[in-house]
Simulated scan of single mutants.
Amino acid sequence: MPTALIIGAGSRIGHATATAFAGAGYKVAVASRTVKPQDISTFTHFVFDAAKPETIGGLFESVRKTVGIPSVVIYNAYASHHTKPETPFETPLNVFSEDMNVNATSVWASARESVQCFEDLSSEKGGLGTEGATFIFTGNMLNDTVGPGFLPFGMGKTAAAHLVKYLALIAYPGKPYKFYWGDQRLADGVPMYTGLSGPAHAELYLSLAKDPEQGPWQQTFVEGKGYVEFPRREFAIPGQ
C-alpha cells in the first residue's frame, strides 16, 4: 500500500486531498501546526511548522518510521502578509524571512527529502509500482502575475514555481518522478482570488499521481474540466 504525505493539512484542500488519497488505497500522513479532530480520527497527524525548514528532515523520518516511505508528497502550506502597494518594504525582516521559509525554503527542503524517498523506493523491488512517484506544490497565479499587497507572497511562490519547473524539466526527466504546480483558474483563465475548491484539487492531484507520465509541470486547471492550457500573460491583479 503506497504512502502519501500532505504538508499543510487545512480544512479545504488539505483535508479533501487526504480523503481522496485514502479512498484510493493510500496510507495518508498529514502535517500541520495544529491537530484537527478529523485528522486524528482518519489520518496519521504530525505536528509541523513550515516556517522551520530545519525540521523537514525530522518530519520525513517520522513519516517513514510511522506510516511508510511516501511516494506522493503534496505541499499545501503557505504564509502571506499583506503590504500596502505604496510601501513594499514595510514587512519586518523576520516576518519576511518566515514567509519565505514557508513558501520557498521549506518547499526546497521537502522536495529534497521527497526525492530521497523516491530513490529509496526505486531501490526496492516494486517499490514505486507502475505509477512512479509524485511531488505536487499547491500554487497560484503569482508566478505569472503581480498584485497590490502580495510582494513577499509572490516572491516565495515564484521561487517555488522555478524549483518545480527545474525538477520536472531538467533534474529528473529520465526517472519515474513527477513534479507539479497546481493552480486553479476560472473557465476563462482568470486567477481565482477566493473560493478554491478542495474536491477539485483532490481530483486533479490524485489523477496526476496515478498517471505514470510527467505532464505539464504547471497544472492550470478548472473545476469540472481538469487541466486547461491557458496562454501565458503578464497582468496585474486589481487592487482590493
Rank of each mutant, 00 (worst) to 15 (best):
T3R: 00
L5C: 06
I7P: 11
I7W: 08
G8H: 11
G10R: 13
R12N: 09
I13Q: 13
H15C: 01
A18L: 06
T19N: 03
F21A: 02
A24I: 08
A24L: 07
V28S: 06
S32I: 13
R33W: 01
V35F: 04
K36F: 00
D39F: 03
I40N: 07
I40V: 13
S41P: 05
T44V: 12
F46E: 01
V47L: 08
D49L: 15
D49H: 08
K52W: 01
K52L: 01
P53S: 03
E54S: 12
S62E: 15
K65T: 06
G68S: 00
G68W: 01
V72A: 03
I74F: 09
Y78E: 12
S80K: 14
S80H: 13
K84M: 05
P85I: 00
P85S: 04
F89K: 00
P92G: 05
P92T: 13
S97W: 01
D99R: 03
D99C: 02
M100D: 12
M100L: 14
N101S: 10
V102Q: 04
V102F: 05
T105D: 04
S106R: 01
V107I: 12
W108K: 06
S110A: 15
A111F: 07
R112A: 00
R112K: 10
Q116S: 09
C117G: 07
S123Q: 11
S123M: 11
E124P: 01
G126W: 04
G126D: 15
L128M: 11
G129V: 00
T130E: 12
T130A: 15
E131Q: 13
A133K: 04
A133G: 11
I136S: 15
I136L: 12
F137G: 04
N140T: 13
N143T: 07
D144W: 14
D144G: 07
V146N: 11
V146A: 13
V146P: 05
L151P: 02
M155V: 13
G156K: 09
G156S: 06
H162R: 11
L163T: 09
V164W: 03
K165C: 10
K165F: 04
K165Q: 10
L169W: 08
P173N: 11
G174N: 12
K175E: 02
K175F: 02
W181R: 05
W181V: 10
G182N: 10
A187S: 11
D188E: 09
V190W: 15
P191C: 00
M192I: 05
Y193P: 02
T194H: 14
T194F: 15
H201K: 07
L206P: 06
A209L: 02
D211M: 15
D211A: 15
P212V: 06
E213W: 00
Q214A: 03
G215C: 10
G215E: 07
W217T: 03
W217K: 01
Q218H: 12
T220G: 14
E223I: 02
K225T: 14
G226K: 09
Y227S: 03
E229F: 13
E229L: 13
R233S: 10
E234L: 14
F235T: 14
I237D: 03
G239H: 06
Q240R: 15
Q240F: 15
